[in-house]
Structure formats: C-alpha cells, structure tokens
Nucleic acid binder design. Structure first.
Lengths: 138, 138
DNA sequence: TCAAACCCTCACATACATGTGAAGGTCAAG
DNA sequence: CTTGACCTTCACATGTATGTGAGGGTTTGA
C-alpha cells in the first residue's frame, strides 16, 4: 500500500510516517516512480510505535526494542551484544515502573469517579433522581 | 524544606521544580526572604508528577487529575463539573491503553531476554560453553 | 569582612514529536 | 491535454519538557 492508505489505516499523518522512516522505525519499498510501498504488516507496526510513543518512549529506544519483538526475530541471538541486553533489561524495568505508576494513578482516578457518581453525594444533591450515569431509572 | 533539599530528595532539578510550580502542579510557601518553602509531602508529590510525565502525560492533564488523587480530596464532589468527569474518564481509559501497550511490549522484551540468555540457541551456537555472551567468530 | 553556598527571576537554548506549506513529479479520468 | 488526487523532498514553525547561564540578593562560617 502507499503512504496515504497506511496513513488512513493507522490514523497517522504522512509526515509522521516519513519521520518514523527517517528515524529507522519503519522501512518502505519504493515503486518505480519513487512512491513508498508498504507491506500490510506495517499497519500493526505503526500502531505499536504510536502506542509506545504515547507511553513516553523515545524513538531511539523504540528503534532498539522493535526488532526483538517480531515473531520471526529480525535480531537473532548471536546479534545480541551485551550492551543490547543491558539496554533491554533497563527498558523492561522502566516499562514496569511506568505500568505501576499508571496503574496506581488510574485506579485512584477510577475510585474518585466511583465516589463522585454512584457514591453517596455527601452533603449536596439530596435527590436520588434518575440522573448521573450507569444506573438507569429504577 | 527549601528547593535545594526537595531537588535532592526527588532527583529533580531546581529548574524543573520551578517549572512545575509555574504549571500549577505544585505550590510553595515563601519565606520572608522570598525563598520557596516546601511541605515534606511534596517529595511524594513530585515523584508522582515525574512518573506521570515519564509515562507520557502532559502537565496540563496531570494538573487536572492530581487534585482528585489526594487522600483528603482537594476537589470535592460538588466541584466536579461534567466536563471534569468526562476528562477523567477519558484519561483513565487512555491510561489503561498505555498500561496494556506497555505490558504487552514489556512481556515481549522479557520473553526475548529469556530466550537469548538461558534459552536454547536454536540453530547456531552448538557449543554449550559457560559464556552465554556474543559468540566469537566461528 | 569576605567567600561560599544557597536562593531569586529572566531569558535564551535544545531535543523531540509534530504541523504546515512550497515546489514539483505521476497518474487516472474527463 | 488538462485537472485533481496522489506522491516526492525540503524547510521552516510550534509546543513541551528540559538545560544553562547571567545578574543579583541572603545567609553562614572563617
């Protein structure tokens, strides 16, 4: 597929797709006329990249970890240098920290939301009318 | 405590602490001489902010969700506007997505690491020597 | 009293992910 | 053949989180 289709199917601007290619996160074949030509598996790839970017990883790191995540590995065992291993371990641990931080705060938000809606409004709103949320009118 | 101590105890530059204050994420008392004076509970607060920033949340969003996470809520139920509720729900869901993305990729990294070190090198490396590092030239 | 170690504000700089637009090539349909 | 919808590269702009440093006040200890 060409860049326009990949852009539509991933919700990513063409500009960004070219930027990801420039950063070495994706690659593209070229048609005879110079147009980029993408394998359909890049749809998933791009969405994975976007997710990791959104979760705070910089392209430099994403570029390093991506080849280790493919089913048929693009980086094989003999290619793994000790520094590479160390980087992966560090990033794995950082990702775990992020997960813990996000989970903690998300749960706190969820708890607040439960209190604020379904919960007992403590001092105001004495009317149990059919407003506010998941509880349908009873 | 003054800004230097808070900086040391959170691993955050003074510049950043002032920036977080400018963005409304933290507040400070002022001593008679104009120096910032922080309550010790800001150590945790700042580390929470750093974690969320590192996980991809912008200060604008962090500022909105922070007051809902305190034990004695700084935002109470009647203060919660419908837009505020909607924002919190949206961010809660985005955080869940981030957690899922991070978990997925972290587990894939962990799996790769297990394969590359303890695992059986599948097609190359017929020598079970005690190195486990990058195989020297064959 | 002087120096060192704090603190202040303000301003400019940088890295990164992203937007926008110009100048131009390709291709298909009218 | 022309128009419109694609594509190309290149370059400049922007927002956000950060670094760095200048110019200057305060406090403490030798």
């Amino acid at each position: 597929m060409r860049i326009g289709e990949l852009s539509e199917r991933t919700g990513t601007s063409r500009r960004l797709l070219r930027y990801y290619e420039e950063q070495g996160l994706i690659v593209s074949e070229r048609c005879a006329n110079g147009y980029r030509d993408y394998d359909p598996r890049f749809v998933d790839r791009v969405m994975q990249i976007r997710g990791l970017l959104d979760a705070g990883l910089p392209t430099r790191i994403i570029k390093q970890i991506l080849p280790c995540l493919d089913k048929p590995r693009s980086i094989h065992f003999p290619d793994a240098t000790p520094e590479m291993i160390a980087t992966l371990e560090r990033e794995r641990d950082r990702m775990t920290e992020r997960v813990e931080c996000l989970t903690r705060n998300r749960d706190a938000i969820a708890e607040y939301l439960e209190e604020v809606r379904g919960g007992v409004p403590p001092v105001v709103a004495a009317e149990p009318s059919a407003t506010a949320g998941p509880r349908s009118a009873d």
